[in-house]
Design a protein around this nucleic acid. Structure first.
Lengths: 143, 143
DNA sequence: ATAATTGTTAGAGTTAACTCTAAGTCAAGC
DNA sequence: GCTTGACTTAGAGTTAACTCTAACAATTAT
């Protein structure tokens, strides 16, 4: 199956503008054009865009994604480098997940805090922000 | 304890420029200035900055964080709104975590792929990108 | 007392990633 | 044959979040 830029954009939740921008930035060097000049997306091209979204979504800058595709185009000699790249990205995601978990704890504390405050009609006096105090003490090393 | 902008910046991993920028954007309206005009951070101010980092790190734009602090300053009448804000943010984090998990699966697939390719010395022929093919088929609804 | 450090401001400049516009081509339907 | 819709390009404009500069003041170290 082949797809137009519009079809791909719709399915991946991007705009055609964005996909053309990616192309301009060298992220889609293999996408061919039909006789009229319109981009024709093969299934492999869609797969590649899915990987681009994945790398972008885990915080890799477009420049670095382009570096990856350039490695791909250089053939088997760069297999090891590409392997390392993904292992590094995996570590990055693990860190992100841990950070998110810590943020979640803070948010959960706030939800409990406000739940309590609403029950009492005020957050003026009695509630101490113990969780954050703990965090601050950890950072600054005293109580 | 009180802290200078530099001490706070160092501990929270920000630059003094960034903290002043946050102040300019209305994120730190309560931070007082000493006799010389220098910002003096109370412990509560540090706690607030920790919350700012948390909201920012889960993708809330600075504008929206400012809206939250404005709600805080309006007193008990906005408790419910603030509660909802954090519940919404919690949902957002949950979505982010799920997305990260899905990305992790793709990255793990790539790591396995390249591990295998390195063993064989090439990724030319034999390895089919089955995982991504599955994803593409899910999006486009055919094989 | 002088030099280094740390702070201040207003405001300019940068960066990434879009986002949009204008002017045009091309294929399909009425 | 003409309109509609999807595509093309080059290039301008936007946005968020910094990031830096210049010129100056105050504090701290030697």
């Amino acid at each position: 199956m082949r797809y137009s830029i519009g079809q791909v954009a719709k399915k991946l939740g991007l705009t055609t503008h964005t996909i053309r921008y990616y192309d301009k930035e060298g992220l889609l060097p293999f996408v061919r054009k039909g006789s009229s000049g319109a981009r024709v997306f093969e299934e492999d091209d869609v797969d590649w865009l899915i990987i681009v979204e994945c790398l972008k979504g885990t915080g890799m800058p477009l420049k670095e994604i382009r570096t990856y595709i350039q490695l791909c185009q250089q053939g088997d000699a760069t297999l090891q480098k590409r392997f390392e790249m993904f292992k590094k990205q995996k570590e990055k995601i693990e860190k992100q997940m841990n950070t998110l978990k810590q943020y979640m704890e803070k948010i959960d504390f706030k939800i409990a805090y406000y739940g309590d405050a609403i029950k009492h009609g005020t957050d003026d006096i009695y509630i101490r922000n113990t969780w954050l105090a703990t965090e601050r003490e950890r950072l600054f090393g005293h109580k």
